[in-house]
Design a protein around this nucleic acid. Structure first.
Length: 473
RNA sequence: GGGGGGUUGGGGUAGCCUGGCAUCCUGCCGGCUUUGGGAGCCGGUGACCCGAGUUCGAAUCUCGGACCCCCCA
């Protein structure tokens, strides 16, 4: 066993051990901040690549806005400010001089961006305006800090669009949410549920918030990305207006949306096991590792040559590990680091003109002729990616339970965890009461609604919809 | 917000109650040796979270702080 903690016994400690030993992160001297190490940053760059392509297809351009936001800007939208003020970090000094106005380290960039937008948008010809930025964000959380999932500084992208009509903004919200679903499911093999947030859970200042939500192995939900319809709230305050074709003047409709490095944490939790990290092949810095096994110097040459013969035909990333470790050591090490496929080539294999191929996700080993090895590996990488997703999807489905009665709700939250699908009257008081008594919140009201008539799980009145409830990160 | 546990070489630890040369495993460096699931031998390297106090003397006792983790709301 490579790890001291087991996933099923001490999930939290296990997770910390994985992210540290697999060299994904390290701590920093400042509480709540962490170093994102190269193997994790590689995953982030894959996420960036994937999303940038989706954004580009949607006509979104990348840009960069400043880290500092004047206090007066943040305070312009009251609800927005109330939502973020408890966790804003402030700069009050510049060198030895006290600043005339405090500067916030951006907890999100709506205000600073829309101030610029108000100058950039004046005609219907300027619309739609779609800008995204990749940047760091500061939110001074005080508790439940966890690497990748909740840190005081994190990396994300935030997109901010301006539209002429509500309908166009609605479409934008959904388009981006689909991109988030795609990056989670296609790249990270992390199945998600798409839906609407409740009023209590929506983004401060938004008209409504949509989200992709996923489930972690410990039964807690994880919000993987959000996409907000801001309506005209911010446009009104920041003066984002445009002249219409017929000479009139209208307030613009806006959206904002974001996904962060927390995706990496979710992916790690979801797929990894007691041997360490398990990476979906599509985001693995190293997809195949070759382990030559030999006794004599002559054998060493032969096995190395065989490794190269196969490796050269691969179109994915690979490494021949010819360090002077024992094979067993290498097996454990590369499993800990999450390399999806391992190829072992020793004398036994050479004699049969075959290679031994081990997959990280299931641990299965298979003998394949050297001739066909590269094709086998290419296919295996796809299979692993698919298997990780299917396994996770099965877990998500099996841990989504429908309940009718509140007593049953409480029991499931305590004993089985996971998502609970239950009727809700739409009343915030019931939502709050459920949260008070169980710790579970409405994670998402799924878009895919069935027509089953239900009663509110708390008050028994007719239900308006059937949200997924869960305790969450 | 509440409660609890913890911090000793790079990682994991013993020592703390009862103050007096800091233990073991692992890693790392060098050498020999070794290769189908974390091999072996020899040599070397490397630590008491920070600050104040008590004391002849503090990893150990007292006070304060920082950081990490867990559980509950």
């Amino acid at each position: 066993m490579a790890l001291e903690n087991r996933k099923t016994e001490n999930f939290s400690e296990w997770y910390l051990e994985v992210v540290k030993k697999a060299e994904l992160m390290d701590y920093s001297p400042v509480q709540g901040c962490m170093i994102i190490r190269p193997r994790a940053y590689f995953v982030w760059e894959k996420i960036q690549g994937f999303l940038n392509q989706k954004f580009a297809e949607d006509g979104v351009q990348n840009a960069y806005f400043p880290l500092f936001i004047p206090q007066s800007f943040l305070e312009k939208e009251a609800e927005h400010f109330r939502g973020f003020s408890p966790e804003v970090a402030w700069v009050t000094m510049g060198g030895n001089e006290a600043l005339g106005e405090k500067l916030a380290l951006r907890p999100t960039s709506e205000t600073v961006m829309y101030d610029a937008y108000s100058r950039w948008v004046s005609s219907h010809r300027d619309l739609p305006l779609k800008i995204n930025q990749w940047c760091n964000i500061i939110r001074w959380d005080t508790k439940a800090l966890k690497p990748f999932l909740r840190t005081r500084e994190f990396l994300w992208q935030e997109g901010h669009t301006v539209h002429a009509t509500r309908e166009e903004a609605d479409v934008e919200v959904r388009t981006v949410l689909n991109s988030y679903k795609a990056v989670c499911e296609e790249l990270l093999a992390m199945p998600v549920v798409q839906g609407l947030k409740s009023e209590a859970e929506k983004f401060p200042g938004a008209e409504y918030t949509t989200a992709v939500e996923t489930l972690m192995p410990d039964g807690k939900a994880l919000q993987a990305g959000t996409s907000h319809q801001l309506g005209q709230n911010f446009a009104k305050i920041f003066g984002v207006e445009f002249k219409t074709a017929d000479g009139g003047k209208k307030l613009a409709w806006q959206t904002s949306w974001g996904a962060s490095t927390r995706l990496i944490g979710g992916m790690v939790m979801l797929h990894s096991d007691d041997k360490g990290l398990v990476l979906p092949p599509k985001v693995a810095p190293l997809q195949v590792v070759f382990v030559p096994i030999y006794k004599t110097e002559e054998d060493r040459g032969l096995t190395l040559k065989a490794c190269s013969r196969v490796a050269k035909k691969l179109s994915c990333s690979w490494l021949v590990d010819d360090s002077d470790r024992t094979p067993g050591w290498k097996f454990n090490e590369w499993e800990l680091k999450g390399v999806p496929v391992r190829v072992e080539i020793g004398l036994k294999d050479l004699a049969k003109q075959s290679v031994t191929i081990a997959r990280r996700d299931t641990g299965e080993k298979e003998e394949v002729t050297e001739e066909k090895a590269h094709q086998f590996i290419a296919k295996l990488l796809e299979k692993i990616q698919e298997n990780l997703f299917n396994k996770a999807k099965k877990f998500l489905d099996e841990n989504t339970r429908e309940v009718q009665k509140f007593a049953e709700f409480k029991r499931v939250i305590e004993e089985e965890k996971g998502f609970i699908k239950a009727g809700w009257c739409g009343n915030a008081q019931c939502e709050e009461a459920v949260k008070e008594e169980t710790g579970a919140t409405i994670r998402v009201i799924p878009f895919e609604e069935d027509e089953t008539p239900r009663k509110c799980v708390y008050c028994d009145r007719p239900a308006k919809n059937a949200p997924l409830f869960a305790r969450s990160y």
